[in-house]
Amino acid sequence: MEPSSFVNQIGGESFIYVLILVFVAFIVMNFVDSIRKGRRLRIEPPHAQTELVCPSCNLKEVRSYREGDFIGKVSDENCKSCDHTLSMKGIYAEPKKISSR
C-alpha cells in the first residue's frame, strides 16, 4: 500500500467510521459506568481497637474492641505486669474501609 493511499483511507470514510465507533463506545461506557455506580456499594465496618492502660505501672495493651467498651471504663482485665485493673484509655480505628467503588 502506498503511503498516500493509506493517509487517504484514514482521512476518508474509514476515519469517519472510526470516529463514530469511538463516539458510540464512549456513550456505552458512560452508561455502563452509571449502571455499575448504582450497583456497587460495599459497606464494611472499620476495625475498632481498644487501648488499655495500667494506672499503676502505665503498661499499655491494645486489643480488638468488644461490645460495651468505652473510654474511661475500668476494665475487668488485669495488668500482665503488676496485676492492677486496667482502664480504657482510647478506642480508635485503623484506616477506613468504607468504599462505594
Partner: peptide
C-alpha cells in the same frame, strides 16, 4: 438524558444507603 442517567445511578446508591 446522560445527566439523568448518572443521577439515577447515584440515587440508587443513596437508596441503598
Amino acid at each position: 438524558q446522560m445527566a439523568m442517567f448518572e443521577i439515577r445511578g447515584h440515587l440508587k446508591q443513596l437508596n441503598k444507603m
